[in-house]
């Protein structure tokens, strides 16, 4: 038996044999095991697609009680077919340096990791502003990159491409912390309607609805607080109307302004 030193995953090849009589050929590796009945003296054909998992194989010809064996190495097909593109995070605050990262593992059509170096291009394109692109060569089948998030909120497409195969991930570039949080108050019957101005981050992006704004009213040693979600860019709440009460606002760790009701700002 004369074995080829290496074969490409999924390709056809033949193994010439010597001698005569019937025998059995086994090709056994961790990822695959094949058996072919052979007539010694004739070559054994392994059809395309029969041996497709990359790795080290042991080929054995068994004829009666005797056998002979040899090593066979199956290498990944050279053309990428699948990219495992690990892109994180799925949400990233705007304007974050190296805030987005992607790693690509390149596989052939048989899910063998292609370890020969090849270029992978990464491109991040948002709804506004220029796109960012770079090309990285794989090492041991993997390429990775880090990219800044845009300054405007919105969904960005993060595309990895290798050998004509492209995979896209969507990254939500989301507003950062509220910036310049301010409130105002108006009487509303027996109560005081306190509401924020439009809540934006420092880049002017509106803070998403549902974000909690905490209102605190202090009056005569008593305190009234409420965690209120932003709805349609503002948060509002009715609070007790005490003349001389101070009302402040905060969101997370960001504090806003403070007003005094009935005593001017």
């Amino acid at each position: 038996m004369t074995l080829p030193q290496t074969v490409t995953a999924g390709s056809a090849f033949s193994v010439p044999t010597s001698g005569s009589g019937p025998a059995v050929l086994y090709i056994v590796g961790p990822d695959q095991a094949l058996r072919r009945d052979v007539q010694l003296g004739n070559p054994v054909s392994i059809a395309a697609g029969d041996l497709y998992n990359a790795g080290e194989y042991l080929a054995i010809i068994v004829a009666g009680s005797s056998s002979s064996s040899g090593e066979l190495e199956v290498t990944p097909a050279p053309h990428p077919d699948t990219l495992s593109f690990l892109a994180t995070p799925s949400r990233v605050p705007v304007g974050l340096h190296n805030g987005i990262n992607g790693a690509v593992y390149v596989f052939d059509a048989y899910h063998n990791l292609i370890v020969t170096p090849m270029p992978v291009s990464f491109e991040l394109s948002g709804s506004s502003g220029p796109s960012q692109a770079r090309t990285i060569t794989t090492s041991h089948g993997v390429a990775w990159t880090e990219i800044d998030s845009a300054s405007k909120q919105g969904s960005a497409k993060f595309i990895a491409q290798a050998g004509g195969i492209a995979t896209t991930r969507v990254i939500d570039e989301v507003p950062g912390d509220p910036c310049g949080l301010t409130i105002s108050a108006q009487p509303d019957g027996a109560k005081l309607r306190v509401q924020t101005a439009l809540v934006r981050d420092c880049s002017g992006n509106p803070i998403p609805d549902g974000t909690i704004v905490t209102f605190t009213e202090n009056y005569n040693g008593a305190q009234t607080t409420a965690d209120v979600p932003i709805k349609k860019d503002i948060a509002q709440i009715d609070m007790p109307a005490y003349s001389g009460a101070t009302i402040s606002v905060a969101s997370g760790v960001v504090a806003g302004n403070e007003i005094r009701w009935g005593g001017g700002r």
Binding site: A222, Q223, T224, A226, I237
Partner: peptide, 23 residues
């Protein structure tokens, strides 16, 4: 869900007769 919103009114920290926050 963002609801329900619960306002905590008239919180007062009392030392007597026993230390407590009421509201």
């Amino acid at each position: 869900s963002a609801d329900p919103v619960v306002e905590i009114e008239n919180q007062k920290y009392n030392l007597d007769p026993e230390a407590s926050l009421t509201g």
